[in-house]
Simulated scan of single mutants.
Amino acid sequence: MNFCKPLLLACLLVLGLPSQAQAFDLQQLSDQLARPEVIHGRFIQEKHLRALAQPLTSKGHFVLARNHGLLWLLQTPLQQDYRMTPKGIARRDGAGWQMLPGKSAGAEQNRLFLAVLQGDSSGLQRDFELKLQGSAQAWQLQLIPRSLLLQQIFTQINIEGGSLVQRIELLETQGDRTVMTMQDSTSAQPLSDTEQHDFAE
């Protein structure tokens, strides 16, 4: 399983965009990226492979915490927990959280994820050409890779949302496509004791 791509997708869930009278721009988007403390929600991910008629579907829950990182809790077709923090990506096994190797394209995606999570628009603009259109209630953001490493992975990333992100699509260089649909996303719940413990380990 490629765990980096779903984590990169999930990193974009922090968008919560209020009604604005003026034109909606990247600075407002950047400001909103840094605002939510915690977001909980469910995800459905569909991996469309050229060789398969039907997409590979996975489902689970996520917890995105501004001051901690991301818990990515895969439930089907298998159960597997991932955690992404400034230290890197970890996977939970019977012995607890185990850090995964960081010298790879996955490490670059980890850095990109944290830039989005922290609302670092300057970091994103170093790696992508950003094209935003629409309003705070219905917007679309297109990311075109600038860096050679990301160009080897993605041709384009498309994000759509209203008050929160609703859909993310990754178009990959080899012709495959990943679509993430976010459901029941809320910023109203604080971290539970269990979630705080998971981030602290």
Rank of each mutant, 00 (worst) to 15 (best):
M182F: 12
G175N: 06
G16V: 12
I153C: 00
L17Q: 14
S121K: 15
Q142R: 14
E46R: 15
L12A: 12
Q75A: 01
W139H: 11
Q142L: 14
G41N: 05
K103P: 10
I159G: 03
M84V: 04
F154T: 00
L12T: 11
Q20P: 14
S30W: 11
A10S: 08
F3H: 11
K59G: 00
V38C: 03
Q22V: 09
D93W: 04
G134E: 05
L191W: 08
P190L: 01
R92N: 06
T85G: 01
L15Q: 07
Q166V: 07
G161M: 05
E172G: 01
L117P: 04
Q109K: 11
S58K: 06
Y82K: 14
L26F: 12
L191I: 04
I89D: 01
L124V: 00
V38Y: 05
L29N: 02
H48M: 07
D127T: 00
L13D: 11
L71R: 03
R42M: 09
I144G: 00
P55K: 01
G106V: 03
Q125N: 11
Q151Y: 06
G41H: 03
W97G: 01
F62Q: 02
L71D: 00
D127W: 10
R42N: 13
L56M: 08
Q183T: 13
V116D: 00
T57Y: 04
L26G: 02
P86F: 01
C11F: 10
Q152C: 05
G41R: 03
S192Y: 05
W97M: 03
L150W: 14
S122D: 12
Q45M: 14
R111H: 10
A105D: 12
M1P: 13
M180C: 11
G94C: 04
M99Q: 12
S163L: 06
R91L: 13
A51M: 10
F128D: 05
Q183L: 11
A115T: 04
E201A: 13
G106M: 00
T76L: 05
Q196N: 13
L64A: 04
L148N: 11
G88Y: 02
D31L: 10
I159S: 06
A90M: 09
V116A: 09
T76C: 04
L8C: 01
T178W: 14
L74S: 04
F43Q: 01
T57D: 02
